[in-house]
Design a protein around this nucleic acid. Structure first.
Length: 338
DNA sequence: CGTTGGCCCTGATCGC
DNA sequence: TGCGATCAGGGCCAAC
């Protein structure tokens, strides 16, 4: 259940270790973790060995590690100069990043943790973590030789090599890099609410336009990314909105309040979860920190609502548990009919 | 095109 | 002790 705060903890933990690190070896224990890679595991391995990571970038729950372009790839350089530099100069956008110039990465390893994925950094002599599906051995300038283990119980997560494409708005693609380059498979994912380039107006317009419930909208990564079941319930509780309230019945003020609460909840979780990184025995764990979060609604069914004291309820919604206070978060039917 | 329901997955836990 | 049932759902895609 890693959501934005947990994935950010992973990104921040990986960043100092993988930046500038090269891949010494790759072992794939379970090919299902490469489901989103277009090609067999041999392709994944061959294209990764010897390559160097340049950063650790995150948008919403998606994480990617851009790969330094292979030196001496003349075809690619000529192609980039022809299609990128010349075109950019002709169109007069030279002030913007020319993301197609040869020094920019052209591809990245995209990591999605799914429900149960973890990225764990270990020393080379450490025993394999349980449920490790992919192991990447790194030569890191900061930490020497180390292992990056991708562990995943339910195998909803994945790793994949994907092409980097320019962002639609020309802004930095996510947190961790100033480059306006996003993996093709992540391009359709909306920016997250902590991203300075998050388009609030577009989000509010979508809420007014769509014919759907507010929780479904919060979980729709094409509208707003980074929110999962836990922080959706927590944000709705904070904003006193019922999960099934139609989005087009929310006033702009209420929608603005909700977005504020979303940001508050995510930022608070982030501040609580960002302390576990150890520089010596690097332990990046997507699941850690969850239980230290002070939750008001999620998993609190039967307990007292911290606001009004009445019991928190749990109902099935979208094949998920929805936790809410029936007193504080009421469906506003009259608004729905207007 | 917007919306929705089904599917992929397996370890941990629980009840009998 | 053993074993089957249940639960956790994010993202994607077919279908309506």
């Amino acid at each position: 259940m890693p959501e934005l705060p947990e994935v950010e903890v992973v990104r921040a933990g990986l960043e100092p270790a993988v930046t500038g690190a090269s891949v010494a070896s790759v072992t794939v224990f379970d090919e299902r973790s490469l489901r989103r890679h277009s090609g067999p595991s041999e392709d994944f391995i061959d294209r990764l060995i010897g390559r160097t990571f340049t950063a650790a970038v995150r948008r919403g729950k998606f994480l990617w590690l851009p790969l330094e372009p292979v030196r001496g790839d003349v075809t690619h350089i000529l192609e980039a100069q022809d299609n990128g530099t010349a075109a950019a100069e002709r169109s007069g956008v030279s002030a913007q990043q020319n993301v197609q110039s040869p020094e920019f990465p052209k591809e990245a390893v995209v990591v999605h943790l799914g429900m149960s994925g973890q990225v764990l950094l270990r020393t080379v002599d450490a025993p394999d973590d349980r449920l490790t599906r992919i192991r990447i051995e790194l030569a890191s300038p900061a930490h020497g030789a180390l292992m990056m283990n991708f562990a995943d119980q339910r195998i909803f997560g994945s790793m994949a090599i994907d092409e980097l494409v320019p962002t639609a708005d020309g802004q930095a693609a996510g947190l961790g890099s100033a480059q306006a380059l996003v993996p093709r498979s992540v391009a359709h994912i909306a920016r997250d609410p902590l991203d300075p380039a998050f388009d609030q107006r577009r989000f509010f317009a979508a809420l007014a336009q769509r014919n759907t419930s507010i929780k479904r909208a919060l979980l729709d990564q094409n509208l707003i990314s980074g929110i999962g079941n836990i922080y959706a319930d927590e944000s709705l509780w904070a904003a006193r909105i019922h999960y099934n309230q139609p989005t087009n019945t929310l006033s702009l003020a209420k929608a603005q309040l909700l977005l504020t609460e979303v940001r508050t909840v995510l930022a608070k979780a982030l501040s609580e979860g960002g302390t576990s990184f150890d520089a010596q025995y690097v332990n990046v764990n997507g699941a850690s920190g969850y239980f230290s979060h002070s939750l008001n609604a999620y998993g609190q069914q039967g307990k007292s609502c911290p606001r009004c004291g009445r019991p928190i309820a749990r109902e099935r919604f979208m094949n998920r548990g929805s936790h809410f206070c029936p007193h504080c978060q009421r469906l506003r039917i009259s608004a729905a009919l207007s």
